[in-house]
Amino acid sequence: KELVSALYDYQEKSPREVTMKKGDILTLLNSTNKDWWKVEVNGRQGFVPAAYVKKL
């Protein structure tokens, strides 16, 4: 599985998104959309802005 690192804090703005803190390591589930990537963090799945994470 592919991992990404959070470059910035992000506070979810809808139920489809997830909150992350800078430095968090997230499991990348889907990166086909260039703007929003689906990740899993702390057992929750949702979307984060692609520009806020980088692949490890």
Rank of each mutant, 00 (worst) to 15 (best):
E12D: 05
L29Q: 03
T19C: 06
W37G: 00
D24M: 13
V4F: 12
K55P: 12
N30K: 07
D35W: 15
L7C: 12
N30I: 09
K21R: 13
L7D: 03
E40N: 04
S14P: 05
K38S: 08
E40K: 05
G46I: 04
Y8H: 11
T27L: 14
K13G: 09
S14G: 13
L28N: 00
K38D: 04
V4S: 04
V4Q: 02
K22S: 08
R16D: 12
Y10V: 01
Y8D: 07
K34V: 11
L29Y: 04
F47H: 05
E2M: 14
Y52K: 07
V18H: 03
P15N: 11
V48L: 02
A50I: 03
E40H: 05
E40A: 09
L28K: 01
K1E: 11
G46S: 02
A6E: 00
G23I: 01
P15Y: 10
E2H: 12
P49D: 02
S31A: 13
Y52N: 05
P15L: 10
W37I: 05
V18K: 01
L26G: 09
N33G: 11
G46T: 02
E2R: 13
L26H: 02
Q11E: 14
V41C: 11
D35F: 15
K54A: 13
V39C: 05
A6N: 00
K38Y: 15
L28F: 03
L29T: 04
K54P: 02
N42V: 05
R16V: 10
G43C: 07
V4P: 02
T27R: 12
T19Y: 04
K34S: 13
S5L: 15
N42S: 09
S14D: 11
M20K: 00
A50E: 03
D24S: 06
V48A: 03
L56S: 07
V53H: 00
T32D: 15
Y10Q: 00
K1L: 14
K55L: 14
W37K: 01
K22P: 03
D9G: 06
F47D: 03
K55H: 11
E12K: 15
Q45E: 12
K55A: 10
W36R: 03
K22N: 04
Y8R: 14
G43M: 05
G43A: 05
K22A: 13
K54M: 14
F47T: 03
K54L: 12
